[in-house]
Amino acid sequence: MKVYELKVNHSNTTTLIMKNRDALSSHPIRSDFKEQNLARDWQPAEMQTYKRRKFNEFPYLIPEKPIVSEKVMQILKPHTPTEVEFLPLLHNEFELYMMNVTNILDCVDWQRSEAQWLYEKYFMRFDKLVFDFAKIPKNTYLFKTEELATTKVFVTELFRELIEDYQLPGLDFSVVYDSEFTYTEAEQRMDQGQAVGSGKWRMQFDEEGEFWLGELTLELKYRWGRPVYIPPILLGYSWHEVEKCEIDSFNW
């Protein structure tokens, strides 16, 4: 599984600014977008083009908040009824919507993440952000974390696949958070009772604490054994968590 930071490709996407910015001082658009619901009190705010560029499906707003075209809204809305409010905006050329992502997940892996705190109490920022992918529901498209709810939106592979299926340009998927990990981390997860996999290989401990290595055969069945040593090639593989298998017999 992969998670991406929702980022606009500034170099080829139209940039917007708020029209009559001072008149919008008390408008919800000036809020931190951390509240769960804004639609009830929302009145369409007027945008204007600052720099016109090639793509207009995901315009970039100064200050940065996620905006999509009506086309993108129509594509995303059926998939995100509990994750996003689409708030209408005004523009003299485009039909636009601001996205208020209300799906806030407690999915930070604090054991592997590195954060800075003020007085060991107040969160400041992440130096290294790692997600606990088990806490991200499989049907998730967009979400925020409590710690970064005012500044960042994250999207899943489902979101990226949808965008690519409809060939919607203008996003930058270069900031990736991957659920894969090294062999050393795989050993740590097995010690915690998890099973791990990489390609045709699986590793896990049984109920007696015995280590098992499985190889997927051409018959699509795992051939399990208890090796004397780990094949060195496996040490360089990237691993991910998998469901534990029932090991029927020793068959190496």
Score class of each variant (00 low, 15 high):
85 E>Q: 08
99 M>D: 06
102 T>K: 14
114 E>L: 11
76 L>E: 02
65 K>R: 15
97 Y>A: 04
111 Q>R: 13
97 Y>E: 09
84 V>W: 05
103 N>E: 11
64 E>N: 14
59 P>T: 05
105 L>C: 09
94 F>L: 12
109 D>N: 13
66 P>S: 02
68 V>K: 03
109 D>F: 02
98 M>Q: 12
63 P>D: 02
99 M>Q: 08
59 P>H: 11
90 L>N: 15
70 E>N: 15
107 C>I: 07
81 P>V: 05
101 V>M: 09
77 K>S: 14
95 E>C: 06
110 W>G: 07
90 L>M: 13
89 L>M: 15
114 E>Q: 15
81 P>I: 12
64 E>S: 15
57 E>Q: 00
100 N>I: 11
111 Q>H: 11
67 I>T: 04
85 E>A: 07
92 N>I: 04
98 M>K: 09
113 S>D: 03
104 I>K: 10
79 H>K: 11
114 E>H: 13
68 V>P: 02
72 V>H: 00
114 E>I: 14
68 V>N: 01
84 V>D: 03
81 P>E: 03
64 E>I: 12
64 E>F: 13
106 D>V: 05
70 E>K: 15
96 L>R: 11
62 I>L: 14
66 P>T: 01
109 D>H: 10
59 P>M: 10
80 T>S: 06
76 L>G: 08
88 P>K: 09
63 P>Q: 02
115 A>F: 05
102 T>R: 11
97 Y>T: 06
111 Q>P: 02
58 F>L: 01
100 N>R: 07
104 I>H: 08
72 V>P: 00
98 M>F: 07
79 H>A: 15
69 S>E: 05
68 V>H: 01
75 I>F: 01
73 M>N: 12
114 E>N: 09
104 I>S: 10
110 W>N: 11
80 T>W: 00
103 N>Q: 10
84 V>S: 05
91 H>K: 13
86 F>V: 08
70 E>Y: 12
103 N>G: 07
60 Y>T: 13
98 M>P: 01
66 P>H: 00
63 P>S: 01
85 E>Y: 01
102 T>F: 09
91 H>L: 08
59 P>V: 01
82 T>Y: 14
105 L>S: 07
106 D>E: 11
93 E>W: 11
107 C>K: 08
105 L>G: 07
92 N>L: 05
107 C>F: 03
100 N>T: 11
96 L>P: 03
80 T>K: 02
91 H>A: 12
67 I>C: 01
107 C>G: 06
67 I>P: 00
88 P>Y: 01
62 I>Q: 13
96 L>N: 11
99 M>L: 11
92 N>T: 12
75 I>R: 04
90 L>H: 15
79 H>D: 09
90 L>P: 09
78 P>A: 05
82 T>M: 13
75 I>E: 05
83 E>R: 04
104 I>G: 10
106 D>Y: 10
107 C>W: 07
66 P>L: 00
60 Y>N: 14
84 V>Y: 04
71 K>Q: 14
82 T>P: 04
109 D>G: 08
109 D>W: 06
85 E>W: 01
83 E>L: 04
59 P>K: 10
102 T>N: 14
101 V>Y: 02
108 V>R: 06
66 P>Y: 00
96 L>C: 06
101 V>Q: 02
104 I>N: 05
100 N>P: 08
82 T>N: 15
76 L>Q: 02
112 R>K: 14
83 E>H: 06
78 P>N: 08
93 E>L: 14
69 S>H: 03
71 K>F: 08
115 A>D: 06
104 I>T: 12
93 E>K: 15
97 Y>M: 04
